[in-house]
Design a protein around this nucleic acid. Sequence first.
DNA 1: AGAATTCATGCAATCGCTTTCATTGTTCCT
DNA 2: AGGAACAATGAAAGCGATTGCATGAATTCT
Lengths: 329, 329
Amino acid sequence: MSKPTIYSIAQRCGVSAATVSRVFNRPELVSTRVREQVTAVARELGYLPNPAARGLVTGRAETIGLIVSDITNPFFPLLVRSIQRTAERMGSSVMLVDAEESAAAEVRHVARLRGRVDGVIVASPRSSSAALREAAKGLPCVLLNRPLRDLSSVICDNTSALFDAGEHLHKHGHRSFALLAGPSASWAAARRSQAIRGWARGRGVELTELGPFRATFKGGRQAGAALLETGATAAFAFDDLTACGVLAELAGRGVAVPGDRSVVGCDDVLLARTVTPSLTTVTAPMDDLGATAVQVLTRQIEAPGGAPEHHRLPGVFVARDSTGPRSTS
Amino acid sequence: MSKPTIYSIAQRCGVSAATVSRVFNRPELVSTRVREQVTAVARELGYLPNPAARGLVTGRAETIGLIVSDITNPFFPLLVRSIQRTAERMGSSVMLVDAEESAAAEVRHVARLRGRVDGVIVASPRSSSAALREAAKGLPCVLLNRPLRDLSSVICDNTSALFDAGEHLHKHGHRSFALLAGPSASWAAARRSQAIRGWARGRGVELTELGPFRATFKGGRQAGAALLETGATAAFAFDDLTACGVLAELAGRGVAVPGDRSVVGCDDVLLARTVTPSLTTVTAPMDDLGATAVQVLTRQIEAPGGAPEHHRLPGVFVARDSTGPRSTS
DNA sequence: AGAATTCATGCAATCGCTTTCATTGTTCCT
DNA sequence: AGGAACAATGAAAGCGATTGCATGAATTCT
């Protein structure tokens, strides 16, 4: 009693395999009577179509690849969830690959996934533009948080939210700021720095640039130490993880937040709410980001060679407890 | 110029497709001359074997499924990484599915994965034993952190590490403890509670049981509030996330940690190091857990119907800053 | 030298499904 | 009633690999 196939079902129903296949793919082409019988027998036998066989003829794997630069980064879990959920709704599974921070691993994995997936989403790629372009050649691909002319991309733009953050601090009396820059290879870091610079210039306030720092807790501690050597009363951290490091460093040196200094993070990861004081930060629209990426990818898959799409989703400023009035001392 | 197949290569080399296939699968059966020529042409044409076609005949997908109960739980990222890394080393890809905390989704996904994967790993399942058994019927399956007689399992046993934690607190003068229990559906929670109860009884110290609390930051805050109503000077939180909630609640009420109370977490997730004070906790051997799970699964796949294996990996106690001497006040 | 092995290769079946095309009845027009 | 249009189905050709069996050549043995 081996695995049921369309043939076992066909035989049991006294019809041809073609008809059974049609019951599942183009049911409207089959008479009601036969359709019901086939469905019943299929259920009874516990029939499941063989994806390999189907894939072989359709050329589709009904699977998309998701390459994340670093699964341990708290930024990703919600993104993964959203992507997976959307993909499932479109009938696709998700193959997840963690590049462990390595640019080489990224392109290697894109190559490996080729053939097993219908397309890939590369989240926060570390690779060079040229490498990405090359790796994605002939494979539907969507970049997340990394714009590139010839490849589709979905990015979270925090520019205006960071403006809001600046205004928020300015309203609280802050006039001297520090920018704790993130890793230089990261597009997001560059973009955020640029936004903050722009705001500070427009506002005519003092801005001290520090870094780049690694986007880790430790990097944050270093950033915190560096911050204390400046006269800045408020700091923009690259992301929440870094901000947590800053908080820890300041706390360790007896500097009160937001009493003595204000700190804002970015991304609004779980951490941001659980740390004390809770982080003022910028919320990324994770669900949208993931859903959009999958939809764009689906379009690319269905119309290969179509023009790349570029989507830009804004982050939203959210004030919590790590920012407050400038200390009067 | 369509996708290269073994036929295009065979033609170009003046050999049969079977030979080309052998070059990749049983190279020792092919003469050096032909082998080299085929390899060269394959490379030149950018040939990649079609996994669907291969899978159709071999019956293997070279893919394993990984179902996690909740991808947003900080416990998982490192586990996912380790599993993925190990799987890749064995030549398999990983299909990740997030059950979003739903027991129903778990078994639904196991069913969906059937046929697309060679086997599945279910991490911290929420489903009932019966449901799991049923869902895994005829599909190689390894349970993570959930023992079940008829299915293979790999679990992290924190019993002895929690003993160490107890001793550590005892040495610091604590005599009255609180157990902040985790969700009742979680095997890990039950196991940990049991361990702590056992230790307290053996030590002859006072133990107040509170909860169950949800394994979230909020649940932790509630646990923290409940803790303050007891006379306990030290508390065992279910996990690090809960412990963070406790910390936050205590901090909010002006209770010093470890000055007034000591708190220990469990799992040693990223959070544990980034929170202030850093958490005394129990480190789970993530790499081992993941690697073992994949190896066991591989064995199950290669010898279907083999006896289930059960592995138990111990956690390790690690003292940090959230525990200290009992307050003298 | 002739038989027996061994080696390298090709032929062809097969995996389970989709899909085109042809073949039946049926129904509908005029 | 005769032919057109249509609905339901089957036969068969792939999709791209793997693999058991057969074959012919080269090597070894006696």
